[in-house]
Nucleic acid binder design. Structure first.
Length: 211
DNA sequence: TTATAGATTGCCT
DNA sequence: GGCAATCTATAAT
């Protein structure tokens, strides 16, 4: 899981122009890339949000200024601010005009760990992997590690390296994918729309991946 | 116009 | 295990 078989190359627009369930599952094992500072991390946990028929989705009540990215063309970053403290990163799915998205919940750091630690304000030098887990295990944590904010990244094209934040395929193939209910929501809390790499220590949540 | 809940995290007891 | 932090969208006066 550590190595990149090949340098990552960007995913296509068509990859994201599909149902969020399909996109979420296939995003596992892909790589999130930040150009400045240089950061890469493997996607190990995501959740699908289905659009206007999903009560838990931000798009459930229809298009607003805040969630308009979810209704626009696929492959763009939707960033929202929650609890007055944290940003969360999503990618828009479905063709232009239809809502849907995938929330990034956990990453496994690959390169640029020191910069991530600096962004998170934690110490990792000479520590065990337990502290590494604090870098990117959780939607708020990974956003902070990657310097994701609404002002900087909302609406950014995640299929283009020129945008400075994008998603790549480095040849890694995900195995042992598990599906559970989504975390932290109260509406439609029973739908099995959370996907993660079973056994990966960077997966968030109280049970899975705890050390 | 005011109140409240929220796709979370970290520090408190 | 409980709760504060603190912005935004939406519901309730």
């Amino acid at each position: 899981m550590r190595k990149s078989p090949t340098p990552p190359h960007p995913l296509t627009r068509a990859f994201f122009a599909r149902n969020p369930r399909r996109v979420a599952r296939e995003l596992l094992g892909k790589v999130l890339v930040r150009e400045t500072p240089a950061l890469t991390a493997r996607i190990v946990e995501v959740e699908a949000y289905l659009g206007e028929n999903d009560p838990a989705a931000h798009s459930a009540a229809g298009r607003t200024a805040r969630n308009s990215i979810l209704f626009g063309p696929p492959g763009y970053a939707y960033v929202y601010f929650i609890y007055g403290t944290h940003y969360c990163l999503n990618v828009s799915c479905e063709p232009d005009g239809r809502a849907g998205g995938v929330l990034f919940r956990a990453l496994e750091p690959l390169t640029g760990l020191r910069a991530m630690a600096q962004a998170r304000g934690i110490e990792i030098e000479g520590t065990e992997s337990r502290n590494l887990r604090q870098l990117t295990s959780g939607p708020g944590r990974l956003s902070e590690a990657f310097g994701v904010t609404r002002a900087r990244d909302n609406g950014c094209d995640l299929t283009s390296p020129a945008s400075g934040l994008w998603i790549g395929d480095d040849g890694y193939r995900a195995r042992n994918i598990r599906t559970t209910a989504r975390i932290g929501i109260t509406k439609a809390a029973d739908k099995p729309l959370r996907y993660f790499l079973n056994g990966n220590p960077f997966v968030s949540g109280p049970k899975t991946g705890s050390m």
